[in-house]
Measured scan of single mutants.
Amino acid sequence: MAAAAAAGAGPEMVRGQVFDVGPRYTNLSYIGEGAYGMVCSAYDNVNKVRVAIKKISPFEHQTYCQRTLREIKILLRFRHENIIGINDIIRAPTIEQMKDVYIVQDLMETDLYKLLKTQHLSNDHICYFLYQILRGLKYIHSANVLHRDLKPSNLLLNTTCDLKICDFGLARVADPDHDHTGFLTEYVATRWYRAPEIMLNSKGYTKSIDIWSVGCILAEMLSNRPIFPGKHYLDQLNHILGILGSPSQEDLNCIINLKARNYLLSLPHKNKVPWNRLFPNADSKALDLLDKMLTFNPHKRIEVEQALAHPYLEQYYDPSDEPIAEAPFKFDMELDDLPKEKLKELIFEETARFQPGYRS
């Protein structure tokens, strides 16, 4: 834990890192770190609560700039109880001085990944967590956004079992017609939660990839272990087919990539493993919904509104309290091709509203 900075004593240090967030945020305490930044909790002297502050230093890398800009653009436009918001952003007053960006968010005690390492969940908890994931996802999908990296560590939890989806750095506007060349190379989302079509096709992607990830998360809540822990690309596919069985001819016809289709045709026939054999203690309604989410063919996979209306979630289902976005989200430009200098300018502009004396 960093010592509390005395008023006016300059930035606090946390594990050798400068955290320049005073005077409003003090009493910093280390939480963890990701690929390009550290997260601390801090005391907000204005709202009198502890908050989470993520320090991001992305400006050396085009990919990190892209992810940072995506996350900020999306989260500043989203407003939903099951999606983490941005409360404040701290950065230098000029673009030349801006080396880091500090993002202030609600402090959540833990995440689903940490929880599943230590606790076996009751059916009631599984049901409530799944409902909140789908409630947040309904809003995301209504904005025409794909999260693309749903996994237990991106689901934040607090002691009252509130759940918030975080990390929109890989999110995209849904565009089933656009052929994202190089899709697989830039697709760094965790393999275990990846839909089979991501490994088999490169053309376009749809909201059904997020539903697949939610199915993987439900299976993990039922058993405290990942359902498809593939060691590499082909191993991942083999794990999936080992449980779902061989795809039907109709399902194979959806695979545009001939090499991928021929690979699947070359494999020995596998039978589907019954879900109640894998999860003998699970609620039968939970397994019915799991089956509809972990469907090989993305066109037959359940959609988020149908999933919310499934009998497993009937005690929570309330369409009048499951809000959607006001308007579909649009990125003005494809960020993939922009140089990091341009992305830095866009991050600077996007964060201006939090600067003292800002006038829109």
Results as ranks from 00 to 15, higher is better:
Leu121Ile: 12
Lys73Pro: 12
Pro328Ala: 08
Leu241Tyr: 09
Ser246Phe: 03
Asp149Trp: 05
Leu107Pro: 00
Met13Gly: 14
Lys114Ser: 13
Ala143Asp: 14
Glu349Gln: 03
Gly85Glu: 04
Thr63Lys: 14
Pro339Glu: 13
Val304Ser: 05
Leu252Ser: 05
Ser153Asp: 03
Phe168Met: 10
Leu313Pro: 06
Val145Tyr: 02
Ile53Arg: 03
Thr295Glu: 11
Gln355Pro: 00
Met108Leu: 13
Lys207Val: 11
Leu112Pro: 09
Gln17His: 15
Tyr43Thr: 01
His125Ser: 13
Tyr205Asn: 15
Asp235Gln: 10
Leu294Phe: 03
Lys117Trp: 07
Lys292Pro: 06
Leu116Asn: 07
Leu156Gly: 12
Asn158Pro: 06
His120Pro: 09
Tyr312Met: 10
Asn262Cys: 01
Met108Gln: 05
Glu186Val: 13
Lys73Glu: 14
Leu267Gln: 15
Val51Glu: 06
Tyr128Lys: 11
Asp167Leu: 00
Val49Lys: 05
Glu197Asn: 09
Ile302Trp: 06
Asn82Met: 11
Pro298Trp: 04
Asn87Thr: 02
Tyr131Lys: 02
Asn27Cys: 09
Tyr43Arg: 06
Gly8Cys: 08
Pro229Thr: 15
Phe354Tyr: 14
Ser57Val: 08
Phe19Thr: 12
Trp275Asp: 11
Thr190Leu: 10
Lys300Thr: 08
Ile256Gly: 06
Phe296Gln: 10
Leu234Phe: 12
Asn276His: 06
Thr159Ala: 09
Gly215Ile: 07
Lys342Ser: 02
Glu60Cys: 02
His299Lys: 12
Lys259Ile: 04
Ala2Ile: 00
Val173Pro: 05
Ile347Gly: 09
Tyr113Met: 10
Asn158His: 12
Glu350Cys: 00
Ser208Met: 09
Arg15Pro: 12
Leu75Met: 15
Glu303Gln: 00
Arg79Pro: 06
Lys99Thr: 11
Leu137Pro: 12
Asn297Val: 10
Val173Ser: 10
Glu350Val: 14
Ile140Asn: 13
Leu244Val: 00
Gln66Asn: 00
Ser248Glu: 06
His125Pro: 08
Tyr139Ile: 08
Arg79Glu: 07
Glu350Ile: 00
Met108Asn: 04
Glu305Thr: 00
Lys73Cys: 14
Ser360Gln: 14
Asp288Met: 02
Gly34Phe: 04
Glu345Gly: 00
Leu252His: 07
Asp20Gln: 08
Ala7Phe: 11
Pro247Asn: 02
Gln17Gly: 07
Pro319Asn: 06
Leu163Cys: 03
Phe279Lys: 03
Gln62Gly: 10
Gly242Thr: 01
Leu200Asp: 12
Cys161Trp: 01
Ile89Ala: 06
Gly10Asp: 09
Thr159Glu: 14
Asp337Ser: 02
Ala52Tyr: 02
Asn224Cys: 10
Ala189Met: 12
Met199Lys: 15
Val214Gln: 11
Glu81Phe: 08
Leu150Gln: 14
Pro93Glu: 07
Leu346Tyr: 12
Ala3Ile: 00
Phe19Lys: 12
Thr68Glu: 06
Cys161Tyr: 13
Ile133Trp: 05
Ala6His: 05
Ile209Leu: 13
Leu265Trp: 01
Gly182Pro: 12
Thr190Ile: 07
Leu267Asn: 00
Trp192Gln: 12
Asp251Val: 13
Pro268Cys: 05
Ala143Gln: 12
Leu184Val: 08
Tyr30Ala: 03
Ile165His: 10
Val304Glu: 06
Tyr263Thr: 06
Lys231His: 00
Lys270Glu: 07
Ile103Met: 07
Asp235Phe: 08
Leu75Ser: 05
Glu250Gly: 09
Asp179Gln: 10
Ile217Tyr: 06
His310Leu: 15
Tyr64Val: 09
Tyr193Met: 08
Ile74Gln: 08
Leu234Val: 11
Arg24Ala: 02
Phe354Thr: 06
Asn201Lys: 15
Leu313Gln: 14
Asn154Pro: 01
Lys344Pro: 07
Ile255Gly: 03
Ser41Asn: 06
Lys117Val: 09
Val104Leu: 10
Asn271Cys: 11
Ile211Trp: 13
Val21Gly: 07
Arg277Val: 06
Cys166Asp: 03
Ser248Phe: 08
Asn154Arg: 10
Ile84Arg: 01
Leu290Met: 09
Asp44Trp: 01
Lys73Ile: 15
Tyr102Ile: 05
Trp275Val: 05
Gln355Val: 06
Ala52Arg: 09
Ile53Asp: 01
Pro229Ile: 05
Lys340Asn: 14
Ile53Phe: 14
Gly85Tyr: 03
Asn281His: 08
Val18Asn: 03
Ser248Asn: 03
Asn297Asp: 07
Trp212Gln: 11
Cys65Ser: 15
Asp291Glu: 13
Pro274Arg: 07
Asp149Pro: 03
Arg77Glu: 00
His120Asp: 05
Gln62Phe: 12
Ile72Ser: 11
Ile133Gly: 03
Tyr205Phe: 14
Met199Cys: 03
Tyr233Ile: 13
Pro319Trp: 09
Lys54Asp: 05
Pro339Gln: 15
Lys285Cys: 10
Asp20Asn: 15
Asp175Trp: 06
Ile133Arg: 06
Glu60Asn: 01
Glu314Trp: 00
Trp192Asp: 10
Asp210Val: 14
Ala92Pro: 00
Ser284Gln: 09
Leu278Ile: 04
Tyr131Ala: 02
Leu237Asp: 00
Asp288Pro: 04
Leu265Ala: 06
Ala2Asn: 00
Glu326Trp: 09
Met38Thr: 04
Ser213Glu: 09
Tyr25Pro: 06
Arg135Met: 06
Gly136Val: 14
Ser208Cys: 06
Leu264Val: 05
Thr68Ser: 15
Pro93Ala: 01
Lys207Ala: 12
Ala307Asn: 00
Glu186Ser: 04
Phe129Leu: 15
Ile347Tyr: 05
Ile227Asn: 14
Pro311Gln: 04
Val104Trp: 04
Val21Cys: 12
Leu244Ile: 03
Lys270Trp: 07
Tyr113Gln: 09
Ile84Asn: 15
Arg191Ile: 06
His310Glu: 03
Tyr43Lys: 02
Leu156Thr: 03
Lys117Met: 14
His310Lys: 02
Ile255Asn: 14
Asn144Pro: 06
Leu335Arg: 05
Thr159Leu: 13
Ile255Val: 09
Lys330Cys: 01
Leu265Met: 12
Leu265Thr: 05
Ile347Lys: 13
Thr190His: 03
Val49Glu: 15
Pro11Glu: 14
Gly10Ile: 11
Ile198Met: 08
Ile227Ala: 01
Arg301Leu: 10
Gly245Pro: 08
Leu184Pro: 08
Val101Ala: 12
Tyr30Ile: 03
Ser122Phe: 04
Asn271Ile: 15
Lys342Met: 03
Pro298Glu: 05
Lys164Ile: 15
Tyr263Ile: 07
Leu130Asp: 07
Ser223Asn: 12
Met13Glu: 14
Gly215Pro: 13
Glu250His: 00
Asn27Val: 08
Ser142Ala: 04
Arg70Ala: 04
Asp235Thr: 03
Arg194Ala: 09
Ile56Gly: 12
Ala3Asn: 02
Gly32Pro: 04
His141Gly: 09
Ile56Val: 12
Asn276Gly: 09
Gly32Thr: 00
Leu290Thr: 08
Ile83Val: 05
Val188Cys: 07
Lys300Val: 07
Asn45Asp: 07
Ala6Arg: 13
Ile217His: 12
Phe19Asp: 10
Asn144Ile: 15
Met98Arg: 06
Ser122Leu: 09
Thr185Glu: 13
Thr181Asn: 10
Tyr263Arg: 10
His120Arg: 12
Leu265Pro: 09
Arg277Lys: 14
Gly182Lys: 09
Ser29Ala: 04
Asn154Val: 11
Ala35Phe: 08
Tyr43Ile: 02
Asp336His: 02
Glu345Ser: 01
Asp283Ser: 02
Ala174Gln: 08
Ala307Phe: 00
Asn257Phe: 09
Ile74Glu: 09
Tyr358Ile: 13
Lys55Asn: 15
Ser360Val: 12
Ser208Gly: 02
Ile86Gly: 00
Asp167Gln: 02
Leu163Asp: 03
Leu313Tyr: 02
Leu338Asn: 09
Met38Val: 11
Gln119Asn: 01
Ser153His: 05
Tyr128Glu: 06
Glu71Asn: 00
Gly136Tyr: 01
Asp337Leu: 06
Arg50Gln: 08
Glu12Pro: 00
Tyr25Trp: 04
His232Met: 01
Leu28Asn: 02
His239Val: 10
Ile211Val: 13
Gln105Asn: 08
Ser320Cys: 06
Val145Thr: 03
His147Cys: 04
Gly357Leu: 10
Cys40Trp: 00
Asp283Leu: 01
Ser284Pro: 04
Val173Cys: 03
Glu303Cys: 08
Gly357Cys: 15
Phe228Ile: 15
Lys344Met: 15
Ala4Trp: 06
Phe348Pro: 02
Ile256Phe: 15
Leu237Pro: 10
Gly34Cys: 06
Ala260Pro: 01
His125Tyr: 12
Arg359Ala: 12
Arg261Glu: 11
Asp235Val: 14
Tyr358Gly: 08
Phe348Trp: 08
Leu76Asn: 01
Asp44Gly: 07
Gly230Tyr: 00
Ala143Met: 09
Ile74Asp: 08
Glu186Pro: 05
Pro323Gln: 03
Tyr102Trp: 02
Glu109Cys: 10
Ile95Asp: 01
Glu314Met: 00
Ala325Leu: 06
Asn123Leu: 09
Ala3Tyr: 10
Val145Ile: 02
Asn281Glu: 10
Ile83Leu: 10
Pro23Phe: 00
Val49Tyr: 07
Lys114Cys: 13
Tyr64Lys: 05
Leu116Trp: 04
